[in-house]
Simulated scan of single mutants.
Amino acid sequence: MTMLKRLTLTPLAFALAAAVSAQTLAESRHNGPTFSGNVTGGVLDVRDRDLDLWTFKAEAGLGGVYTVNDGLRIRYDLVADFANAINSVDEQTWTPGAHRQDDGEIYLRTARVLLMTDYGTFGLQPRVPSGFWGQIYRNVDVFEYNRFHGQTGQNAIFGQAEQASDVLSYGTPRFGGFQFIGAVLTTNAQNDQDFDVVTGRLVYDQGPLNFGLGHTQVRRPGIDNLHRTSFGFGYDFGMVQLGGVYEHNDDREDSSGAADFDAWGVNVSANLSDAWSVSIGYAENDRNLDLDNDVLVGIVRHHFNQDVYAFLEAGRYDNTDNNVAAGISVSF
């Protein structure tokens, strides 16, 4: 076992031993499983492509929490995404999960166990939405189709992925709204390197203000030493919410390559009434090799209740395909 493995796993073993010492697993209490999901469907019109009925999101899953004692709770989640199996994906379009699978396959979006103790939360997560993306980029990720992350195909603005796999994570308890989260990812099991991605972030979320600063080191085929630094913020004024993010990608092996670039985005959202809301966002990057791009996106939503809304969204890109999307989202 390598020194890095020992340093990673020893705190986990210590915390679990301390947490379980008060009583046995046989005395645990189970809250769950609970079933939930979302179906968001409608019409997608991408430039130079036929109009198509489209599933923007189709998730269903279950989760629950075992309370072992006052010092240990065990949470589990299992969520599948069916959008890629439903849609007809090509180079001009994207669907959650489509970046690593064939058209028609169901994508397992979440499979994780979280060990929540007095000493922090330890995550064993074979497949999970990226917490890095979800906490630092969340204030600009407010649209249905134009989501900017690194797995959105031709229209990707940022390098950060939205989906992660093989994640071992640790999050400290919250102190005055602050929390630190560190993680290692073993995305390639055949490269003689246990940890292919090492990442950490400090986030703050209390009252109307949230922000986060994070750093990631990535080693993957073709890129041996990529460093990504990201900063995101948001402020809720009540009727209006403002947010932004900045990302710096430093390919220390090839500064002239496509992986070495800066990107940023801003967004303003407004609650016009209980039934209507709008968001307008702008993002751009300065990729090398004539791969730079920028986008202006707007969306209008009509909320029937807290679980159902209709939307109309449009995205205009400088160097890739514009799109218009419309549909209805139902959560359950």
Rank of each mutant, 00 (worst) to 15 (best):
H99R: 12
Y66N: 09
S21V: 15
D81W: 01
L62M: 11
S273Y: 01
R147D: 11
V300M: 12
D294F: 05
Y170K: 08
N285W: 03
D254S: 15
E91L: 14
Q179R: 15
Q179Y: 03
D286E: 01
S277A: 15
V39G: 13
Y309K: 03
N249C: 05
E144V: 15
D194M: 01
G265C: 07
D274Y: 03
A22M: 07
L289P: 01
T216N: 08
N285T: 02
L296N: 04
G104F: 04
L213D: 01
V218L: 13
A85R: 12
V240G: 02
G234E: 03
Q206V: 08
I280G: 09
G37Y: 09
Q154H: 09
L312F: 06
V240M: 04
R252Q: 15
R301A: 06
Q306E: 15
R138M: 04
L44C: 02
I86V: 15
Q179F: 02
G327D: 08
W94N: 13
F175T: 12
R73K: 11
N188E: 13
H149C: 03
S273K: 07
R138D: 08
L291V: 00
D45S: 15
V89I: 15
N293M: 08
N288T: 09
D260L: 01
G298K: 10
D196A: 02
T199H: 08
D274A: 15
D307I: 09
R138E: 12
T67I: 04
G232T: 02
H215N: 14
F211P: 05
Q163V: 01
H149R: 08
N267C: 06
D48R: 13
G222S: 07
A259D: 08
L124V: 05
A15V: 04
G37V: 10
N271S: 14
P11C: 11
D50A: 13
G150S: 12
V245G: 06
I223Y: 07
V203K: 13
T93I: 03
G150M: 13
R49W: 02
L114D: 15
L202Y: 09
H30P: 03
H303T: 08
N271H: 09
G120V: 04
L108M: 09
Y76V: 00
V142D: 00
T8N: 09
R301I: 01
N84I: 02
R220K: 14
G265D: 10
R49L: 02
S329T: 10
A80T: 15
G61N: 03
D290P: 03
Y317R: 06
P96G: 13
V140R: 13
G63E: 05
R219D: 09
N305S: 09
F180D: 03
T152N: 01
K5G: 11
W133K: 11
L168V: 05
E247A: 03
V167T: 01
A164L: 01
T34P: 02
V20S: 10
L209F: 14
V240T: 12
H303L: 04
I328Y: 08
G177R: 06
V240Q: 00
A326H: 05
T121K: 00
S165H: 03
V113G: 00
G64R: 10
